[in-house]
Design a protein around this nucleic acid. Structure first.
Length: 593
RNA sequence: GGUCUAGUAGCUCAGUUGGAUUAGAGCAACGGCCUUCUAAGCCGUAGGUCCCAGGUUCGAGCCCUGGCUGGAUCACCA
């Protein structure tokens, strides 16, 4: 409809004022609530062309549009704003159409193939709140892009090698050589994470002792025996030592088993999981080739560098003197492999904003190497989650653990549910399922409603709310509607397949239809801007509008059968939209709560 | 020091191609509404120099310039 209006405005300006304008300068927006109308055209841009007063231009256009479009019932002009009002037949037609055809997804003429990389944990510590934000954003963005019509490949790149895992391995040998998660009664990732903390404690103790005996701190950090042992282990790993590899595999598998539980709890999955141990050598050939083509240069010590000073990105090492790869080398290699293997149109990396520089460099290097798709790499950076006292530090145990937080949310939701006591007639397992849905819904919504690029502060002492602008509020609205639909069924009234277009509506019903109609637009925008927050806010608006309506009008006690059917139909569509919107955030909605 | 990013009510946040007297929600505070479709709801009261100063224009919370404050980054770690 908007596009149609824009076209007609362009036409009108040409006919009335004799000048051809670009569609893009026509501004069509939803009319503000304080004014009457549905869509508003801003006429200021045409005032100079018409050489008339804004009011006159608006009136000219209004008349022209009204004659061209059947659906416009009236228009009014305030200053330079032309407000168009559509007749109720138009809105009822839209509602019927959406109810019949809309399934929560759109189709695109030119869908892109998009890879989304997210999660990407280290295997030496359990997932914490920061990872939850990453996972939820990555998951939601993937869902949104898919719903917007794109083809999405979700991937996870696990950092399973390096000095950090060797530290946990060394601590294992030193402190609990015959231990296992089973014996300790822990999740595997927790068990390995604890070893990492033990390593750090021991390491700090050794440094302190060495400094005590007169060594400089710098030296002490190098000479501490446990650190030397860990470095030694890394060398053995790189050399392919079978014993070290066996231990490495055993411990990583413990961690994966733990991660899998957390992912399952969060409802997150991947199409493909990569491991750095398999990819960390890649990119070397590409860099060497780039060196031949003078994209890079070699220093006297044999290391290879990219000179990015022209782009204010300094100089960056891309290959060590001994020929081994770095983080950057590996990312160059994997990007090339992925674009070539998957024929990607776009690659989104969901990674914290601390790595903005890294991705700028990556993109620039790829473009210097001549890859046409370099600008199709998109770093979706998000802000860190901080505690009131500052950054989370897993080494010092100052973290909000992912599993603990999820469990607490579910417990809180269960407690609240029991107090309200509305699920008495459900099986225990069904009740638990609802508690889970709501606890997770509260957590996910809490995180996703915030603009991803902003850093957020989480105070563990103040638990996440279940009232107000929250996930459960929306879930509750959905459950309420489903309850009404169930009651109707008992009265032998089912939701009609469509409603007649001459139904008389009140203002709130009209508003609801308009909000329902917004969904596609919001979805498109959210997909374009990669912002789950827009979806979250949309769902909230819709739920709030419905709750007002629900409060003011009774559905099942409507004056006559025709109105009852219409209201049921409308409510049903609201519940569907809420369900679709929440699904884009990875949140399930219950039938009862 | 360079680069990037944020600053809106006591707290957490909306406010996107710059739009229309009165800048919106929620939480917290105070006061109302359950013999009526689910009160995890609804209504009301109170709460603001949109960090500051200039500029751009018909119009700025939004754009530009300069400052202030917080965060990130500028590693042969990933």
């Amino acid at each position: 409809m908007r596009r149609r209006i824009k076209e007609i405005v362009v036409e009108a300006v040409e006919v009335l004022y004799g000048q051809k304008i670009d569609t893009d300068i026509v501004q069509v927006q939803r009319t503000r609530k304080v004014f009457t109308g549905d869509l508003t055209i801003v006429v200021f841009p045409f005032v100079k062309i018409a050489r008339k007063k804004p009011e006159d231009v608006a009136n000219d256009l209004g008349l022209y549009l009204k004659n061209k479009l059947d659906h416009i019932s009236s228009y009014n002009v305030i200053k330079g704003f032309l407000n168009l009002t559509f007749n109720s037949e138009y809105w009822l037609e839209r509602l019927n159409l959406l109810h019949r055809d809309f399934t929560g997804s759109l189709t695109l003429q030119n869908p892109e193939k998009v890879m989304v990389e997210f999660s990407s944990p280290n295997t030496n510590k359990p997932l914490h709140l920061g990872h939850i934000r990453n996972n939820l954003i990555g998951d939601s963005v993937s869902r949104i892009l898919k719903a917007a019509g794109h083809e999405v490949v979700r991937v996870n790149l696990v950092n399973d090698r390096g000095i950090h895992i060797c530290k946990s391995m060394q601590a294992y040998l030193d402190f609990d050589p015959n231990g296992s998660p089973e014996k300790a009664g822990m999740k595997g990732d927790k068990y390995v994470g604890d070893l990492y903390v033990k390593f750090d404690l021991q390491y700090k103790g050794q440094i302190a002792d060495l400094v005590e005996s007169g060594m400089s701190e710098e030296d002490a950090k190098q000479k501490a025996s446990i650190m030397q042992a860990a470095k030694n282990m890394l060398q053995k790993w790189e050399a392919g030592d079978p014993e070290v590899h066996a231990l490495w595999e055993k411990m990583n598998n413990w961690v994966y088993a733990g991660f899998d539980k957390t992912y399952a709890q969060l409802g997150i999955s991947f199409d493909q999981v990569y491991h750095e141990s398999e990819t960390y050598k890649s990119g070397r050939e590409i860099v060497l080739d780039g060196l031949k083509r003078d994209v890079f240069y070699k220093r006297d010590d044999g290391s290879i560098w990219a000179d990015l000073t022209d782009d204010k990105l300094d100089e960056k090492i891309v290959l060590r003197a001994d020929g081994t790869s770095l983080y950057m080398t590996q990312d160059i290699g994997t990007a090339v492999a992925r674009f070539e293997n998957y024929q990607l149109d776009r690659h989104i990396y969901v990674v914290g904003n601390e790595q903005i520089y890294h991705f700028q460099v990556l993109r620039l290097i790829l473009s210097k190497l001549g890859y046409a798709w370099a600008d199709k790499i998109q770093h979706m950076s998000y802000g860190m989650v901080e505690l009131p006292e500052g950054k989370m530090k897993s080494r010092e145990g100052k973290v909000v653990d992912a599993d603990d937080l999820i469990e607490e949310m579910i417990n809180n939701s269960a407690e609240m549910s029991r107090e309200l006591g509305k699920l008495g007639d459900m099986l225990e397992s069904e009740q638990q399922n609802v508690h889970r849905m709501i606890g997770l819904g509260a957590l996910k919504y809490f995180i996703l409603k915030v603009d991803p690029k902003k850093q957020m502060v989480f105070n563990p002492k103040e638990s996440i709310d279940f009232n107000g602008h929250t996930g459960p509020f929306i879930q509750y609205t959905h459950a309420r509607i489903r309850s009404v639909v169930r009651k109707a069924k008992k009265m032998n009234i089912s939701v009609p397949p469509m409603i007649s277009e001459d139904t008389i509506m009140n203002e709130k019903e009209l508003d609801l239809i308009k909000t329902i109609d917004q969904f596609e637009l919001v979805l498109q925008e959210a997909a374009q801007l990669l912002d789950p927050g827009m979806i979250a806010n949309y769902a909230y608006e819709l739920a709030k509008d419905f709750n007002h309506y629900y409060h003011d009008y009774s559905i099942l006690k409507a004056q006559d059968g025709k109105i009852l059917q219409f209201r049921l139909f409308l409510a049903d569509q609201v519940s569907r939209n809420l369900k679709y919107a929440m699904a884009l955030l990875g949140i399930d909605v219950p039938e009862k709560m």
